[in-house]
Amino acid sequence: MAKILTIEDDQIIGRDIVYILGEAGFDVEWVMSGKDGVARAMSGEFSVITLDRMLPGVDGLTIVKTLRGVGVKTPVLMISALSDVDEQVRGLVAGGDDYIGKPFSPIEMCARVEALLRRRGGPPEPEPAVLRVDDLEIDLIARTSRRGEHVVSLPPVEFRLLLYLARNARQIHTRTMIFEAVWNLHFDPGTNLIEVYVAMLRKKIDLPGMVPLLKTVRGSGYMLG
């Protein structure tokens, strides 16, 4: 069964989407905020995302740009009352895969989701039990990590940070992206929390004599691998 993530702040429309896609045989998870939507989308569990264009706080265009920027390739069906051609083009240019206007018919909603599934090739492949970045290994089931012969003992927040960076290895991640993905909060530019946790993590995975894996990209952010 394909799993669908719906990001929609309107309770009536959200319930309608859950009902429509549920009746069509899909497993639907519904979140009402852009922040929660980004966090869930990054899990890689979903076959398709339906995304409201006009969310409060963080709008749909920003969300889809963020997802594409961190390597999330899940097809996105953007939904909006702004259904003119210019708005559709903006949504597609931002990284959306299809666009449907409000109000929409149940038949059209299901047809568009099914078309995205066919284009994608079906449900996502399950994530491997062990992630590897060079000689670093992360066991997702045991929630443990090691580098070469060295076991890396990490508390929960550091483990989440390492896992996020490993899932998106060799990509640059800004402080904002890391803060929102790992802490699930809006970024506070006055905090040095990211620097503190990156420094602690670096000491544990980049031991003396090892080739550094956790890199600082000056002026941009951080990268693993």
Score class of each variant (00 low, 15 high):
residue 9 D to E: 09
residue 10 D to M: 00
residue 10 D to V: 06
residue 12 I to Q: 09
residue 12 I to A: 13
residue 13 I to T: 14
residue 13 I to G: 03
residue 13 I to Q: 08
residue 14 G to Q: 03
residue 14 G to W: 01
residue 15 R to V: 07
residue 15 R to M: 13
residue 18 V to T: 14
residue 19 Y to F: 15
residue 21 L to C: 09
residue 21 L to A: 06
residue 24 A to F: 07
residue 25 G to N: 13
residue 27 D to S: 14
residue 31 V to A: 01
residue 34 G to F: 11
residue 35 K to N: 11
residue 36 D to W: 04
residue 41 A to M: 10
residue 41 A to P: 04
residue 43 S to Q: 15
residue 52 D to V: 06
residue 53 R to M: 12
residue 53 R to W: 15
residue 55 L to Q: 11
residue 55 L to R: 10
residue 63 I to R: 08
residue 63 I to Q: 09
residue 66 T to F: 05
residue 67 L to Y: 03
residue 67 L to D: 06
residue 71 G to F: 05
residue 72 V to A: 00
residue 72 V to K: 00
residue 76 V to E: 02
residue 76 V to L: 01
residue 77 L to Q: 01
residue 77 L to N: 04
residue 77 L to D: 02
residue 79 I to N: 00
residue 79 I to D: 03
residue 80 S to N: 10
residue 81 A to S: 14
residue 82 L to Q: 06
residue 85 V to Y: 03
residue 85 V to R: 06
residue 88 Q to A: 10
residue 91 G to D: 14
residue 93 V to A: 02
residue 96 G to W: 03
residue 99 Y to N: 03
residue 100 I to P: 03
residue 103 P to T: 10
residue 103 P to E: 06
residue 110 C to D: 05
residue 113 V to I: 08
residue 114 E to N: 14
residue 115 A to P: 01
residue 116 L to H: 08
residue 119 R to V: 08
residue 120 R to Y: 12
residue 121 G to I: 00
residue 121 G to H: 06
residue 122 G to H: 12
residue 123 P to Q: 07
residue 124 P to W: 02
residue 125 E to L: 00
residue 125 E to Q: 00
residue 125 E to I: 04
residue 128 P to T: 03
residue 128 P to Y: 01
residue 134 D to G: 02
residue 134 D to V: 04
residue 135 D to I: 06
residue 138 I to V: 14
residue 138 I to A: 11
residue 139 D to L: 12
residue 141 I to C: 02
residue 143 R to A: 10
residue 143 R to M: 09
residue 143 R to N: 08
residue 143 R to Y: 05
residue 145 S to R: 11
residue 146 R to D: 10
residue 147 R to C: 11
residue 148 G to N: 05
residue 149 E to C: 02
residue 156 P to W: 07
residue 156 P to S: 12
residue 157 V to N: 06
residue 158 E to T: 07
residue 160 R to D: 13
residue 161 L to M: 12
residue 165 L to H: 07
residue 166 A to E: 07
residue 167 R to D: 01
residue 167 R to C: 04
residue 167 R to E: 07
residue 170 R to W: 07
residue 171 Q to W: 04
residue 171 Q to G: 11
residue 171 Q to T: 07
residue 172 I to F: 00
residue 174 T to F: 09
residue 177 M to S: 13
residue 178 I to T: 08
residue 179 F to A: 15
residue 180 E to H: 06
residue 185 L to S: 12
residue 185 L to N: 10
residue 185 L to W: 07
residue 185 L to Q: 15
residue 186 H to M: 12
residue 186 H to W: 09
residue 191 T to D: 14
residue 192 N to I: 03
residue 194 I to Y: 11
residue 195 E to D: 14
residue 199 A to W: 07
residue 199 A to M: 07
residue 202 R to M: 12
residue 206 D to L: 13
residue 209 G to H: 13
residue 215 K to D: 13
residue 215 K to E: 15
residue 218 R to G: 08
residue 220 S to G: 08
residue 223 M to F: 01
residue 224 L to M: 02
residue 224 L to I: 07
residue 224 L to W: 03
residue 224 L to H: 06
